[in-house]
């Protein structure tokens, strides 16, 4: 078993972004069912956290601190989930179930390098 980070990217800055706030609201229950399904397979490494959006800061070179989210790319990090899976294939299969992909969110799947 390896550990994989599922990083959910979504548009947090555009006015007409999808998922929209209403779509996010609607997806609370399916999102929780998706997580419950991962946990039921004992493949959730740690309980997921909810990450703040409004207070987010961007720290750059030359002591520059901006109010986030990062504006130069549209897809900001919306959430991160650490899971267990045998390989990329399995991790991708789990990521595919993320209920907000249908509204434009993107899930990045990254395997944690095994420690020595």
């Amino acid at each position: 078993m390896n550990e994989f980070l599922l990083i959910i990217h979504r548009d947090l800055i555009s006015k007409d972004a999808t998922p929209s706030p209403e779509q996010m609201q609607q997806s609370i229950k399916p999102f929780q069912d998706w997580l419950g399904g991962i946990a039921a397979q004992n493949k959730l490494v740690a309980p997921p956290r909810r990450w703040d959006v409004t207070g987010c800061r961007i720290v750059k070179q030359d002591n520059v601190v901006l109010n986030g989210p990062y504006a130069e790319i549209k897809e900001s990090v919306g959430g991160m989930i650490l899971i267990r899976a045998n390989d990329y294939e399995e991790a991708v299969e789990i990521a595919r179930g993320c209920p907000i992909i249908q509204w434009g969110a993107v899930v990045e799947v990254r395997m944690a390098m095994p420690t020595m």
Partner: peptide, 28 residues
């Protein structure tokens, strides 16, 4: 059953156990 499913989801997220996984699937 939606409530029971939600509660089992939360329970499993907090702490995995085979019996909770089975009961969650029944609720589903």
């Amino acid at each position: 059953w939606e409530n029971i499913l939600s509660l089992y989801n939360d329970l499993l997220i907090l702490e995995y156990s085979p019996i909770a996984a089975l009961n969650r699937t029944f609720a589903l």
